Simulated scan of single mutants.
Amino acid sequence: MSLKNTPQHWGSVSKTLHWLIALLILALGIVGLLMGELPKTPKYFWVYTAHKSLGITVLALVALRLGWRLYAGAPQPVPGTPGWQERIASATHGLLYVLMFAIPLSGWLYDSASGLRPFKLFGLVEMPKLVAPDERAAQLSHALHEWGFWLLILAVLAHAGAAFYHHVHQGDATLSRMLPRGWLAAPQKESA
Score class of each variant (00 low, 15 high):
residue 131 V to T: 15
residue 143 A to P: 05
residue 138 A to H: 14
residue 117 R to V: 12
residue 106 S to T: 08
residue 90 S to F: 06
residue 123 G to A: 09
residue 110 Y to N: 05
residue 140 L to V: 13
residue 96 L to T: 02
residue 119 F to P: 00
residue 102 A to W: 08
residue 132 A to K: 13
residue 113 A to D: 08
residue 142 H to R: 10
residue 135 E to H: 12
residue 98 V to G: 06
residue 130 L to D: 00
residue 142 H to V: 00
residue 93 H to F: 03
residue 132 A to L: 15
residue 94 G to C: 05
residue 106 S to W: 00
residue 85 Q to S: 09
residue 96 L to K: 00
residue 144 L to S: 00
residue 113 A to R: 03
residue 113 A to G: 11
residue 110 Y to S: 12
residue 141 S to I: 03
residue 115 G to R: 07
residue 114 S to E: 13
residue 132 A to N: 12
residue 110 Y to A: 09
residue 101 F to I: 09
residue 124 L to M: 14
residue 141 S to E: 01
residue 105 L to D: 13
residue 102 A to C: 13
residue 99 L to S: 09
residue 116 L to K: 14
residue 121 L to E: 04
residue 123 G to Y: 08
residue 102 A to K: 01
residue 125 V to M: 03
residue 98 V to I: 14
residue 125 V to I: 14
residue 124 L to G: 07
residue 107 G to T: 04
residue 97 Y to M: 07
residue 107 G to W: 02
residue 93 H to N: 07
residue 116 L to Y: 15
residue 144 L to F: 09
residue 134 D to K: 03
residue 105 L to T: 14
residue 101 F to M: 04
residue 90 S to Y: 11
residue 99 L to F: 12
residue 90 S to L: 12
residue 124 L to N: 11
residue 120 K to S: 15
residue 143 A to D: 11
residue 91 A to R: 09
residue 106 S to Y: 06
residue 140 L to D: 06
